[in-house]
Amino acid sequence: MCTGKCSRFIGLALLPMAFICIIANVLLIFPNGETKWTDHITMQVWLMAGVGGAGLFMLCPSCNAIRAGGKGCCGKGCCGNRCRMLRSMISSIFGGLGSFYCLAVSGTALNDGPLCNFNNQTGKASDWVRYNYLFNQSSWDLCIQPPNIVLWHIVLFSMLLGLGAIEFVLCAIQIVNGLMGIMCGDCRKKGNVSKLSRAQF
Rank of each mutant, 00 (worst) to 15 (best):
G107E: 00
L14Q: 06
F9P: 01
G53W: 01
H153K: 06
K36A: 07
C73R: 05
I166H: 04
P147S: 02
C79L: 09
N120K: 15
G70Q: 03
W152T: 03
Y101W: 07
I149M: 05
G69L: 02
A165V: 09
G96M: 02
I66C: 00
K71I: 03
V26E: 06
F30T: 08
G50E: 02
L179E: 09
I149K: 09
N132A: 13
R84E: 08
Q121P: 11
R84T: 01
Q137S: 12
G162S: 13
L161S: 04
V105L: 05
L27R: 06
G191F: 09
Q44N: 12
G33W: 02
G162I: 11
R82D: 00
L12A: 11
V176E: 05
Q137I: 14
A104P: 05
I10E: 01
I66F: 05
M183Y: 14
C60K: 08
S88G: 12
M43Y: 15
Q200M: 15
R8E: 12
D141Y: 12
M183R: 15
T38W: 07
V45H: 00
V51L: 15
K189N: 15
K71A: 11
C2W: 09
G52S: 14
R87E: 12
M159E: 07
L97M: 13
S62V: 00
F94N: 02
P146H: 05
G107M: 04
C60Q: 15
N132V: 11
L97V: 13
M85A: 13
W128T: 02
L56S: 08
A109H: 00
K71L: 12
L170Q: 02
F118Q: 10
A68R: 01
I29G: 09
A199R: 14
N177I: 07
K76F: 10
C116N: 07
L134D: 03
I182K: 04
I22T: 06
M1Q: 13
A13M: 11
Q174F: 11
G70E: 01
G113W: 03
C143I: 05
Q44Y: 07
F9W: 14
S88Q: 06
I20D: 03
L115S: 06
G96A: 03
T3Q: 10
N25G: 01
C2Y: 13
F157T: 04
C184V: 11
Q174S: 15
P61K: 01
G96D: 00
K5W: 14
G164V: 03
L196I: 13
S91T: 10
L110S: 05
C21L: 09
P16I: 09
L15N: 06
L110A: 07
I173Y: 09
R84G: 12
V169E: 10
L163R: 01
R130D: 08
K71S: 09
Q121T: 15
V169M: 10
S158H: 06
L12V: 13
M159D: 06
N32S: 14
A49S: 10
R84L: 12
L179G: 13
P31Y: 03
G77K: 02
F19G: 07
K36L: 11
K71R: 12
R130G: 01
F9V: 15
V129R: 10
I29N: 09
C116T: 05
G50D: 04
C102G: 02
L196A: 14
